[in-house]
């Protein structure tokens, strides 16, 4: 059964449940993913679907990219990704659509996508260190502090938390939930926030 889909983060809002609870939700647009290739255990070693999604301009895409779609006479899509499938519940062929109805309200899912890049960040933002005193002659405001011992071992331990690049990495929310599906607009409303900026590509997968 296909239990995952790629989608685009649209934005977040708030909706009401029947009992009056207001829920913070993020809308993810799962414009139908078009199957471009079916991978099976005998031939490829695993079951999966190669899918394309997102509108693309034909002239902009290079030939190898366009060729994937041309092979099956499909419209060119911007992104090509793969969805792993444990067991096929039906026969899939290139051109089939996978849409938001993969999920239903109440499904537990995990969401992965690239987080927003925050550039070179200090230890307070990056590792939740405490800051030093701002006044009373203190010169230690946002500095990392001691990073190790003295002549023994006269080096810094590996993995020491220090300033550096933050964000822009694959991030997974392991426990999220589908709150509602809006079929006619191909929107999936998931509970809470989702990594990345608006327009970010995320993978939703049932757990």
């Amino acid at each position: 059964m296909v239990d995952s889909i790629y989608g685009k983060k649209i934005g977040s809002t708030q909706i009401f449940k029947e009992n009056g609870d207001a829920v913070y939700v993020t809308a993810i647009e799962a414009e139908p993913c078009v199957v471009v290739q079916v991978k099976n255990k005998e031939k490829d070693g695993y079951n999966g679907l190669k899918v394309g999604f997102g509108s693309a301009r034909e002239k902009k895409e290079n030939k190898p990219h366009a060729g994937v779609f041309a092979k099956n006479k499909l419209d060119i899509k911007k992104y090509i990704r793969e969805i792993r499938v444990e067991q096929f519940d039906r026969e899939y062929k290139p051109g089939d659509l996978i849409d938001a109805t993969v999920f239903k309200a109440g499904d537990k899912i995990k969401i992965s996508g690239n987080s927003r890049g925050k550039g070179f960040a200090g230890v307070i933002k990056r590792h939740n260190f405490h800051r030093g005193r701002m006044s009373h002659g203190s010169h230690s405001h946002r500095i990392p502090g001691s990073v190790g011992m003295c002549a023994t071992p006269s080096r810094i331990h590996k993995g020491k938390k220090m300033p550096g690049r933050l964000g822009g990495k694959k991030t997974t929310l392991p426990h999220s939930e589908v709150v509602d599906i809006i079929e006619d607009q191909n929107l999936i409303l998931v509970k809470g926030s989702v990594p990345g900026a608006k327009g970010n590509i995320v993978l939703l997968k049932k757990i």
């Binding site: 649209i10 647009e29 809006i182 607009q185």
Partner: peptide
């Protein structure tokens, strides 16, 4: 009307 407004309008 953007897509988020469309989502909200269902609950208004």
């Amino acid at each position: 009307m953007n897509k988020i407004d469309k989502v909200e309008s269902r609950y208004l």
